[in-house]
Nucleic acid binder design. Structure first.
Lengths: 167, 167
DNA sequence: AATTTTGAGGAACGATCGTTCTTGACTGAT
DNA sequence: ATCAGTCAAGAACGATCGTTCCTCAAAATT
């Protein structure tokens, strides 16, 4: 029944993660999406409802494919240095942009990212046997390093000092 | 010669700092600026040249009025806890948004914020007598905590641990 | 008082925004 | 072979974007 699709929905969403992770939401136009995602305007709206719908799909995909595996890996981290290495090695562009750009204006986005960050906090707290508040501080510190472009040596200096305290 | 202004340029720029510090650049329209800044469209373009011109003026005002004083205060900080308290107490909304939102798309913005962050790094390094790389890590960590909304206890837990290492 | 200069006021510009509509091509079922 | 349903293609929608133009009011200079 009906013509079959010429685009892969999963590929489209993953490509959207890349686009939305590189620029602010308002900086990515629907024309950009249509051009770089290989999906037609009509199909985009048929499939995702709106630009925001595609953004939410991309965000959830990012949280599921990138952030949740990170939290699982963090659960086995032996020390803070490993934690920071794992976090800064992950591709968290969309999460970071979501926090500063969309969360203040879209409460659904705010809820998603808050839950994701809380999951990371908990994983770190469990892995290092430290209070959640301290783990949240570590998460924040790691995000700050990602924010600055992770000059690779900055985080190292910080965690070396942190870990000398013992677990 | 000529009619005198009915708006205060300094007030306009400070108000612009508030607006641009609260939402992404593309999320602040010229209509928003005209409405909330008490300056007429025509005067805005006459005075600042463009929306970007006003943004740059606001950014420089923010760096001069908020960030530079912070760096000077940091130079007298006795320990990392004071550093984080000072940084998280400062209003760095525009700086943060500039880093993630505008710097990647506007190299003039990128240069301004890079210099400002380097100034903070150096002030911390001098105050705590630590390597610049470690100070940059502290700056990044503080920005990350600001990013997460500074739950006030997160940063405290982190610096308590940091300072136990000694100065 | 006349002239000149500058800002205020507001309409209007072309471009682009997110979204929808119209048309035709393709595919599975009758 | 016909029909019904889905997708592709692209024009086009109204709204809003940043920016400019035109006209009038106010203040300094002559």
């Amino acid at each position: 029944m009906g013509r079959q699709r010429t685009f892969d929905e999963d590929e489209v969403v993953r490509a959207a993660v890349g686009l939305f992770g590189g620029r602010a939401y308002d900086g990515v136009s629907v024309d950009d999406l249509v051009t770089h995602l290989g999906v037609h305007r009509n199909s985009l709206y048929k499939t995702f409802g709106s630009k925001r719908g595609l953004y939410l799909a991309a965000l959830r995909r990012h949280l599921g494919d990138d952030v949740r595996p990170l939290a699982e890996a963090l659960a086995a981290a032996p020390d803070a240095a490993t934690v920071l290495r794992l976090v800064t090695a992950a591709d968290l562009g969309l999460l970071l942009l979501a926090v500063v750009d969309r969360a203040p204006a879209d409460e659904e986005v705010a809820a998603e990212v808050a839950a994701a960050l809380a999951g990371i906090d908990q994983a770190i707290a469990d892995a290092l046997h430290i209070p959640t508040a301290l783990a949240a501080g570590l998460t924040a510190a790691a995000l700050g390093i990602v924010l600055r472009g992770n000059p690779d040596g900055v985080g190292a200096a910080l965690t070396q000092r942190f870990d000398r305290q013992g677990k």
